[in-house]
Protein backbone atom coordinates (compact mmCIF):
# COMPACT_ATOMS: atom_id res chain seq x y z
CA UNK A 1 0.00 0.00 0.00
CA UNK A 2 1.31 3.48 -0.80
CA UNK A 3 1.75 5.93 2.06
CA UNK A 4 -1.09 8.06 0.69
CA UNK A 5 -3.45 5.12 0.62
CA UNK A 6 -2.41 4.10 4.10
CA UNK A 7 -3.01 7.61 5.45
CA UNK A 8 -6.47 7.80 3.91
CA UNK A 9 -7.27 4.36 5.31
CA UNK A 10 -6.15 5.54 8.75
CA UNK A 11 -8.17 8.70 8.29
CA UNK A 12 -11.30 6.63 7.83
CA UNK A 13 -10.53 4.14 10.55
CA UNK A 14 -8.85 6.20 13.27
CA UNK A 15 -9.68 9.87 12.84
CA UNK A 16 -12.90 9.72 14.85
CA UNK A 17 -11.36 8.19 17.93
CA UNK A 18 -8.29 10.47 17.81
CA UNK A 19 -10.59 13.50 17.68
CA UNK A 20 -12.58 11.95 20.53
CA UNK A 21 -9.44 11.60 22.65
CA UNK A 22 -8.29 15.15 21.89
CA UNK A 23 -11.71 16.54 22.85
CA UNK A 24 -11.51 14.72 26.16
CA UNK A 25 -8.00 16.06 26.79
CA UNK A 26 -8.56 19.68 25.75
CA UNK A 27 -12.30 20.17 26.13
CA UNK A 28 -12.12 22.20 22.93
CA UNK A 29 -13.87 20.73 19.87
CA UNK A 30 -12.46 23.12 17.30
CA UNK A 31 -8.93 22.81 18.59
CA UNK A 32 -9.23 19.02 18.66
CA UNK A 33 -10.40 18.80 15.06
CA UNK A 34 -7.76 21.21 13.79
CA UNK A 35 -4.92 19.45 15.59
CA UNK A 36 -6.00 16.05 14.30
CA UNK A 37 -6.17 17.51 10.80
CA UNK A 38 -2.62 18.84 11.29
CA UNK A 39 -1.42 15.44 12.50
CA UNK A 40 -2.67 13.76 9.33
CA UNK A 41 -1.01 16.47 7.24
CA UNK A 42 2.26 15.86 9.13
CA UNK A 43 1.93 12.14 8.43
CA UNK A 44 1.65 12.80 4.70
CA UNK A 45 4.77 14.93 4.96
CA UNK A 46 6.95 12.72 7.18
CA UNK A 47 6.00 9.14 6.44
CA UNK A 48 7.19 9.03 2.81
CA UNK A 49 10.66 10.11 4.09
CA UNK A 50 10.82 8.35 7.44
CA UNK A 51 8.60 5.36 6.82
CA UNK A 52 5.27 4.55 8.45
CA UNK A 53 5.66 4.22 12.23
CA UNK A 54 5.05 0.87 13.88
CA UNK A 55 1.90 2.13 15.58
CA UNK A 56 0.54 4.80 13.26
CA UNK A 57 -2.57 5.46 15.36
CA UNK A 58 -0.47 6.23 18.43
CA UNK A 59 1.88 8.41 16.34
CA UNK A 60 -1.09 10.43 15.07
CA UNK A 61 -2.56 10.82 18.57
CA UNK A 62 0.76 11.97 20.02
CA UNK A 63 1.37 14.38 17.16
CA UNK A 64 -2.11 15.86 17.53
CA UNK A 65 -1.65 16.11 21.30
CA UNK A 66 1.68 17.89 20.98
CA UNK A 67 0.20 20.24 18.46
CA UNK A 68 -2.60 21.04 20.90
CA UNK A 69 -0.03 21.70 23.65
CA UNK A 70 1.87 24.06 21.34
CA UNK A 71 -1.22 25.92 20.32
CA UNK A 72 -2.47 26.28 23.88
CA UNK A 73 0.91 27.53 25.13
CA UNK A 74 0.97 30.17 22.40
CA UNK A 75 -2.64 31.17 22.79
CA UNK A 76 -4.06 33.69 25.21
CA UNK A 77 -5.80 31.11 27.37
CA UNK A 78 -5.73 32.25 30.98
CA UNK A 79 -2.82 30.82 32.92
CA UNK A 80 -4.76 28.65 35.36
CA UNK A 81 -6.83 27.01 32.64
CA UNK A 82 -3.71 26.44 30.60
CA UNK A 83 -1.87 24.74 33.49
CA UNK A 84 -4.86 22.47 33.99
CA UNK A 85 -5.07 21.41 30.34
CA UNK A 86 -1.31 21.07 29.95
CA UNK A 87 -1.17 18.86 33.04
CA UNK A 88 -3.80 16.55 31.55
CA UNK A 89 -2.07 16.50 28.17
CA UNK A 90 1.35 15.87 29.70
CA UNK A 91 0.14 13.04 31.85
CA UNK A 92 -1.78 11.16 29.23
CA UNK A 93 0.24 8.26 27.87
CA UNK A 94 0.84 7.87 24.14
CA UNK A 95 -1.78 5.26 23.82
CA UNK A 96 -4.50 6.32 26.19
CA UNK A 97 -6.53 3.63 27.94
CA UNK A 98 -10.10 3.15 26.96
CA UNK A 99 -9.71 4.47 23.44
CA UNK A 100 -13.06 2.99 22.50
CA UNK A 101 -14.58 4.82 25.46
CA UNK A 102 -13.53 8.14 24.00
CA UNK A 103 -15.24 7.38 20.73
CA UNK A 104 -18.40 6.31 22.52
CA UNK A 105 -18.28 9.50 24.62
CA UNK A 106 -18.05 11.49 21.43
CA UNK A 107 -20.95 9.69 19.78
CA UNK A 108 -23.22 10.12 22.81
CA UNK A 109 -22.33 13.79 23.11
CA UNK A 110 -22.97 14.46 19.41
CA UNK A 111 -26.37 12.76 19.79
CA UNK A 112 -27.36 14.51 23.04
CA UNK A 113 -31.13 15.17 23.08
CA UNK A 114 -30.62 18.80 24.17
CA UNK A 115 -29.38 19.43 20.61
CA UNK A 116 -31.90 19.74 17.80
CA UNK A 117 -32.06 16.54 15.75
CA UNK A 118 -30.57 17.97 12.55
CA UNK A 119 -27.63 19.33 14.55
CA UNK A 120 -27.04 15.91 16.10
CA UNK A 121 -26.91 14.34 12.66
CA UNK A 122 -24.59 17.02 11.26
CA UNK A 123 -22.29 16.97 14.26
CA UNK A 124 -21.99 13.19 14.14
CA UNK A 125 -21.07 13.27 10.47
CA UNK A 126 -18.62 16.10 10.90
CA UNK A 127 -16.89 15.01 14.10
CA UNK A 128 -17.16 11.24 14.15
CA UNK A 129 -16.90 10.33 10.47
CA UNK A 130 -14.90 13.37 9.34
CA UNK A 131 -17.08 14.41 6.38
CA UNK A 132 -16.44 18.04 5.47
CA UNK A 133 -19.03 20.71 6.12
CA UNK A 134 -19.44 21.11 2.34
CA UNK A 135 -20.11 17.38 1.91
CA UNK A 136 -22.68 17.34 4.70
CA UNK A 137 -24.39 20.43 3.29
CA UNK A 138 -24.64 18.79 -0.16
CA UNK A 139 -26.01 15.60 1.35
CA UNK A 140 -28.75 17.49 3.19
CA UNK A 141 -29.44 19.88 0.33
CA UNK A 142 -28.74 23.06 2.30
CA UNK A 143 -26.24 25.85 1.56
CA UNK A 144 -22.81 25.29 3.08
CA UNK A 145 -23.11 28.47 5.16
CA UNK A 146 -26.32 27.15 6.73
CA UNK A 147 -24.64 23.88 7.64
CA UNK A 148 -21.58 25.67 9.01
CA UNK A 149 -23.80 27.80 11.22
CA UNK A 150 -25.67 24.73 12.43
CA UNK A 151 -22.39 23.08 13.44
CA UNK A 152 -21.08 26.20 15.18
CA UNK A 153 -24.32 26.56 17.16
CA UNK A 154 -24.23 22.93 18.23
CA UNK A 155 -20.64 23.17 19.46
CA UNK A 156 -21.45 26.42 21.24
CA UNK A 157 -24.36 24.85 23.04
CA UNK A 158 -22.24 21.89 24.11
CA UNK A 159 -19.72 24.31 25.62
CA UNK A 160 -22.03 27.01 26.99
CA UNK A 161 -24.71 24.76 28.46
CA UNK A 162 -22.08 22.24 29.56
CA UNK A 163 -23.44 19.15 27.88
CA UNK A 164 -21.33 16.46 29.52
CA UNK A 165 -18.70 14.63 27.45
CA UNK A 166 -19.37 11.11 28.60
CA UNK A 167 -21.22 7.88 28.12
CA UNK A 168 -24.47 8.40 30.05
CA UNK A 169 -24.85 6.69 33.42
CA UNK A 170 -26.88 3.48 33.62
CA UNK A 171 -30.24 5.13 34.40
CA UNK A 172 -30.03 7.29 31.27
CA UNK A 173 -28.33 4.77 29.00
CA UNK A 174 -31.34 2.99 27.41
CA UNK A 175 -33.01 6.27 26.48
CA UNK A 176 -29.83 7.88 25.19
CA UNK A 177 -28.82 4.79 23.25
CA UNK A 178 -32.20 4.99 21.54
CA UNK A 179 -31.33 8.57 20.63
CA UNK A 180 -28.01 7.54 19.06
CA UNK A 181 -29.71 4.77 17.07
CA UNK A 182 -32.34 7.25 15.86
CA UNK A 183 -29.62 9.51 14.47
CA UNK A 184 -27.99 6.62 12.57
CA UNK A 185 -31.39 5.45 11.31
CA UNK A 186 -32.20 8.93 10.02
CA UNK A 187 -28.81 9.13 8.36
CA UNK A 188 -29.34 5.84 6.59
CA UNK A 189 -32.84 6.76 5.43
CA UNK A 190 -31.60 10.09 4.06
CA UNK A 191 -29.19 8.19 1.87
CA UNK A 192 -31.62 5.42 1.04
CA UNK A 193 -34.31 7.85 -0.10
CA UNK A 194 -31.89 9.46 -2.55
CA UNK A 195 -32.30 8.36 -6.15
CA UNK A 196 -29.72 7.19 -8.71
CA UNK A 197 -26.17 8.21 -9.52
CA UNK A 198 -26.78 11.95 -9.63
CA UNK A 199 -27.20 11.88 -5.90
CA UNK A 200 -24.08 9.92 -5.10
CA UNK A 201 -23.22 12.23 -2.21
CA UNK A 202 -26.48 11.39 -0.54
CA UNK A 203 -26.18 7.67 -1.27
CA UNK A 204 -22.86 7.89 0.53
CA UNK A 205 -24.83 8.57 3.72
CA UNK A 206 -25.86 4.89 3.68
CA UNK A 207 -22.20 3.89 3.68
CA UNK A 208 -21.47 6.24 6.57
CA UNK A 209 -24.53 5.07 8.52
CA UNK A 210 -23.45 1.44 8.16
CA UNK A 211 -19.92 2.29 9.20
CA UNK A 212 -21.18 4.16 12.28
CA UNK A 213 -23.53 1.30 13.15
CA UNK A 214 -20.57 -1.09 12.93
CA UNK A 215 -18.57 1.13 15.25
CA UNK A 216 -21.44 1.32 17.71
CA UNK A 217 -21.88 -2.46 17.68
CA UNK A 218 -18.15 -2.91 18.33
CA UNK A 219 -18.36 -0.47 21.24
CA UNK A 220 -21.67 -1.76 22.66
CA UNK A 221 -21.71 -5.47 21.77
CA UNK A 222 -24.40 -6.20 24.37
CA UNK A 223 -26.95 -3.84 22.85
CA UNK A 224 -29.24 -5.95 20.63
CA UNK A 225 -30.98 -2.93 19.09
CA UNK A 226 -27.62 -1.60 17.86
CA UNK A 227 -26.98 -4.98 16.26
CA UNK A 228 -30.55 -4.91 14.91
CA UNK A 229 -29.95 -1.52 13.31
CA UNK A 230 -26.70 -2.70 11.71
CA UNK A 231 -28.51 -5.77 10.36
CA UNK A 232 -31.36 -3.61 9.05
CA UNK A 233 -29.06 -1.20 7.23
CA UNK A 234 -27.01 -4.03 5.70
CA UNK A 235 -30.14 -5.84 4.50
CA UNK A 236 -31.73 -2.73 2.99
CA UNK A 237 -28.50 -1.60 1.41
CA UNK A 238 -27.92 -5.05 -0.14
CA UNK A 239 -30.49 -4.10 -2.80
CA UNK A 240 -28.73 -0.85 -3.79
CA UNK A 241 -27.65 -2.06 -7.28
CA UNK A 242 -31.10 -3.41 -8.18
CA UNK A 243 -33.25 -0.55 -6.88
CA UNK A 244 -32.87 1.74 -9.88
CA UNK A 245 -33.19 1.14 -13.61
CA UNK A 246 -30.86 2.67 -16.20
CA UNK A 247 -33.04 5.78 -16.35
CA UNK A 248 -32.59 6.24 -12.61
CA UNK A 249 -36.19 5.31 -11.78
CA UNK A 250 -37.04 3.25 -8.73
CA UNK A 251 -37.72 -0.45 -9.47
CA UNK A 252 -40.43 -1.96 -7.20
CA UNK A 253 -39.23 -4.73 -4.91
CA UNK A 254 -41.10 -7.53 -6.74
CA UNK A 255 -39.60 -6.49 -10.10
CA UNK A 256 -35.99 -6.20 -8.97
CA UNK A 257 -33.32 -8.49 -10.40
CA UNK A 258 -32.54 -10.42 -7.24
CA UNK A 259 -29.28 -11.75 -8.63
CA UNK A 260 -27.96 -8.20 -8.29
CA UNK A 261 -28.59 -8.12 -4.56
CA UNK A 262 -25.43 -8.25 -2.48
CA UNK A 263 -25.49 -11.84 -1.20
CA UNK A 264 -22.57 -11.38 1.20
CA UNK A 265 -24.27 -8.43 2.82
CA UNK A 266 -27.57 -10.32 3.14
CA UNK A 267 -25.75 -13.21 4.79
CA UNK A 268 -24.02 -10.90 7.26
CA UNK A 269 -27.28 -9.05 8.01
CA UNK A 270 -29.16 -12.28 8.68
CA UNK A 271 -26.38 -13.64 10.91
CA UNK A 272 -26.29 -10.39 12.90
CA UNK A 273 -30.06 -10.39 13.26
CA UNK A 274 -30.01 -13.97 14.56
CA UNK A 275 -27.37 -13.10 17.14
CA UNK A 276 -29.40 -10.07 18.26
CA UNK A 277 -32.67 -11.99 18.52
CA UNK A 278 -31.01 -14.71 20.59
CA UNK A 279 -30.59 -12.14 23.38
CA UNK A 280 -34.35 -12.13 23.84
CA UNK A 281 -34.70 -8.33 24.01
CA UNK A 282 -36.51 -7.43 20.77
CA UNK A 283 -37.15 -3.85 19.71
CA UNK A 284 -38.26 -1.84 16.67
CA UNK A 285 -34.94 -2.13 14.80
CA UNK A 286 -34.73 -5.89 15.22
CA UNK A 287 -38.33 -6.22 14.03
CA UNK A 288 -37.65 -4.05 11.00
CA UNK A 289 -34.50 -6.04 10.26
CA UNK A 290 -36.54 -9.25 10.49
CA UNK A 291 -38.98 -7.87 7.91
CA UNK A 292 -36.08 -6.85 5.66
CA UNK A 293 -34.63 -10.34 6.09
CA UNK A 294 -37.91 -11.95 4.91
CA UNK A 295 -37.57 -10.00 1.66
CA UNK A 296 -33.81 -10.45 1.33
CA UNK A 297 -33.89 -14.22 1.70
CA UNK A 298 -36.81 -14.89 -0.69
CA UNK A 299 -35.37 -16.22 -3.93
CA UNK A 300 -38.32 -14.97 -5.97
CA UNK A 301 -40.86 -12.29 -5.04
CA UNK A 302 -43.57 -14.99 -4.83
CA UNK A 303 -41.50 -16.90 -2.25
CA UNK A 304 -41.78 -14.02 0.22
CA UNK A 305 -43.01 -15.17 3.62
CA UNK A 306 -45.95 -12.73 3.82
CA UNK A 307 -47.64 -14.32 6.85
CA UNK A 308 -44.39 -13.85 8.77
CA UNK A 309 -44.13 -10.23 7.61
CA UNK A 310 -47.73 -9.55 8.60
CA UNK A 311 -46.96 -10.98 12.02
CA UNK A 312 -43.86 -8.79 12.35
CA UNK A 313 -45.77 -5.64 11.40
CA UNK A 314 -48.03 -6.32 14.34
CA UNK A 315 -45.02 -6.40 16.60
CA UNK A 316 -43.62 -2.90 17.22
CA UNK A 317 -45.52 -0.63 19.61
CA UNK A 318 -47.36 1.88 17.48
CA UNK A 319 -45.58 4.87 19.03
CA UNK A 320 -42.09 3.74 18.05
CA UNK A 321 -42.94 1.98 14.83
CA UNK A 322 -40.57 3.45 12.27
CA UNK A 323 -41.86 4.12 8.78
CA UNK A 324 -40.97 1.41 6.34
CA UNK A 325 -39.02 2.11 3.21
CA UNK A 326 -39.11 0.39 -0.19
Amino acid sequence: MTVDAEVSELFRAERGRIVATLIRLTGDWDLAEECVQDAFARALECWPREGVPRRPGAWLTTTARNRALDRLRRSSVEAAKLREVVAVLDESPDEADGIGDDLLRLIFTCCHPALVLEARVALTLRTVTGLTTAEIARAFLVPEATMAKRLVRARQKIRNARIPYRVPPAHLLPERTGGVLAVLYLLFNEGYAASGGAELVRRNLCVEAIRLARTLVALMPDEPEAVGLLALTLLQDSRRDARFDDAGDLVPLDEQDRSRWDGGQVEEGVALLDSALRRGRPGPYQVQAAIAACHATAERAEDTDWPQIALLYGEPPSSSRPRSSG
Binding site: H112, A114, A161, R162, I163, P164
Partner: peptide, 8 residues
Protein backbone atom coordinates in the same frame (compact mmCIF):
# COMPACT_ATOMS: atom_id res chain seq x y z
CA UNK B 1 -25.05 21.71 38.79
CA UNK B 2 -22.16 19.65 37.49
CA UNK B 3 -23.52 19.70 33.95
CA UNK B 4 -26.64 20.02 31.81
CA UNK B 5 -27.73 16.44 32.49
CA UNK B 6 -27.97 17.19 36.21
CA UNK B 7 -29.84 20.45 35.56
CA UNK B 8 -32.26 18.58 33.28
Amino acid sequence: CADLDEAI
